[in-house]
Amino acid sequence: MRFRAKILDVACLNHFTRVINTIAKLAKTCTLRLTPDKLYFILTDKVANGGVSMWCELSQGNFFDEFQMEGVAAEHNEIYLELTPENLSRALKTAQNAKTVKIKLTNKHCPCLTVAVELPSLASSSRIVTHDIPVAVIPRRLWNDFKEPSVPDFDVSIYLPVLKTMKSVVERMKNLSNSIVIEANLNGEMNLKIETDLVSVTTHFKDLGNPPWVSDGDSQNSTQDRDPETMAEARVDIKKLQQLLAGQQVNPTKALCNIVSKRIVHFILLHEDVYLQYFIPALA
Rank of each mutant, 00 (worst) to 15 (best):
M1P: 01
R2D: 08
R2Y: 13
A5H: 07
D9W: 00
V10Q: 09
V10S: 11
V10K: 13
A11F: 11
C12Q: 06
L13C: 07
H15C: 02
F16I: 09
N21E: 08
K28W: 13
K28L: 10
L34S: 06
D37V: 01
L39Y: 08
I42G: 11
I42T: 11
T44C: 15
K46E: 07
V47D: 08
G50Y: 12
G51C: 12
M54W: 05
E57Q: 08
E57C: 04
S59K: 10
G61T: 09
N62W: 06
F63C: 09
F67Q: 07
F67V: 05
Q68S: 15
Q68V: 08
A73Q: 13
A74F: 14
I79L: 15
I79E: 06
Y80H: 14
L81A: 11
T84F: 12
E86Q: 14
N87M: 12
N87T: 05
K93I: 12
T94P: 01
T94I: 10
N97W: 14
K99L: 12
T100S: 12
T100P: 07
K102C: 10
N107S: 06
H109T: 08
C110V: 13
P111W: 08
T114M: 14
V115K: 08
A116H: 13
A116S: 12
V117Y: 14
V117A: 14
V117D: 13
E118T: 13
P120G: 13
L122F: 15
S125P: 02
R127L: 15
H131F: 14
H131V: 07
V137E: 15
W143K: 12
P149R: 04
S150I: 12
V151I: 14
F154I: 11
V162D: 08
K164A: 06
K164F: 07
T165D: 07
V169F: 09
M173I: 01
N175K: 07
S177P: 01
N178W: 03
V181L: 03
N187S: 03
N187L: 06
G188L: 00
E189P: 00
E189G: 00
N191E: 01
E195L: 04
D197K: 07
D197F: 09
D197N: 06
L198Q: 05
L198P: 02
L198S: 08
L198E: 07
L198Y: 06
S200T: 06
V201C: 02
T202W: 02
T203M: 09
F205Q: 03
G209L: 04
P211D: 10
W213K: 02
S215V: 05
G217K: 01
G217T: 04
S219H: 14
Q220P: 09
N221P: 03
T223P: 02
D227Q: 05
E229W: 10
A232M: 13
E233S: 12
E233T: 09
E233Y: 08
A234M: 09
R235T: 09
L245A: 09
G247V: 03
N251H: 03
A255Q: 00
C257Q: 00
C257R: 00
C257N: 03
I259V: 05
I259S: 02
I259P: 03
V260Q: 06
V260F: 04
R263D: 03
I264W: 07
I264A: 03
V265S: 00
L270I: 01
L270K: 03
H271M: 00
E272Q: 03
L276A: 00
I280G: 00
A284V: 00
